[in-house]
Amino acid sequence: MSLALSTTERSELIARHQGAIDGSLKTKLITIGVIAGMVALFVYALTTFELDFWRIINGFSSLGKFVVLMLPPDPGSLTRAIIFVKALFETIAIAFLGTILAAILAFPLGFLAAKNVVANRIVHFLARRSLDTVRGVDALIWALIWVNVVGLGPFAGMLAIMTSDLGAFGKLYSEAIESADKKAVEGVTSSGGNKLHEIRFGLIPQVLPVIASQVLYFIESNTRSSTIIGIVGAGGIGLHLAETIRTLEWQQASFVILLVLVAVSVIDLISNRLRFAIIGKRAV
């Protein structure tokens, strides 16, 4: 006996399950409509971008030239290399310090924005909205503003990283606090603890590991953002990055980019290890 279907058996099978094979018309129409809408918006967007064929071709060909010119990465001279590495150190310092300060300063804000700590709805609403506003402004914009306040240099960059993270940290903290287990807090209350004791012994032990791992995440992502705030003069390697690209020193530019890549992956590695250690400890 053969296992293969004969043609009649096959057409019978198809006839029996025609509905399943065709699918529903409504779903199909919706799918086609969504895709057509997206493509139309895409095409419309392209028409507003002042594109023309030769510009794209020329662009890609000069891009190819740049890539060839970038190889191999070369700092030019030893003094330049030392300057770049120093700037990289500055970048990491900015990210680290900015994140730590934001994490500390956001602590009271997080409690203020948590529903189960501050029951007043107006305070809660205002705290949340102001955190959202701070979060909505990019670190680069904060850097521009802080440069106006404390002048050029890494200090402005650190303050920028700190401000832009305050909003994010405040929100994360308040969520961590809101989702914390109530039982520990009630236990502290029942043994005669006051409000401060409740927070210190009931809430903090629960939220600290979560917060620590979030802080590590932020140090990681801030290393990336602090590499670029130098573009507006707020310290770190971004200044050299922008300068070498603008002066068409391609080999130096690729050297700087390489430095950034290495630094970011090393920090990724370290923070992954640390995070695993923290969370692992918590699981035990």
């Binding site: 500055e90 310092a93 900015i94 680290f96 310090l97 240099g153 890494p154 650190m158 310290g235």
Partner: peptide
């Protein structure tokens, strides 16, 4: 933190 503060010219 101190090393970073030195680096960021705090």
């Amino acid at each position: 933190v101190l090393l970073a503060a030195y680096g960021a010219e705090v």
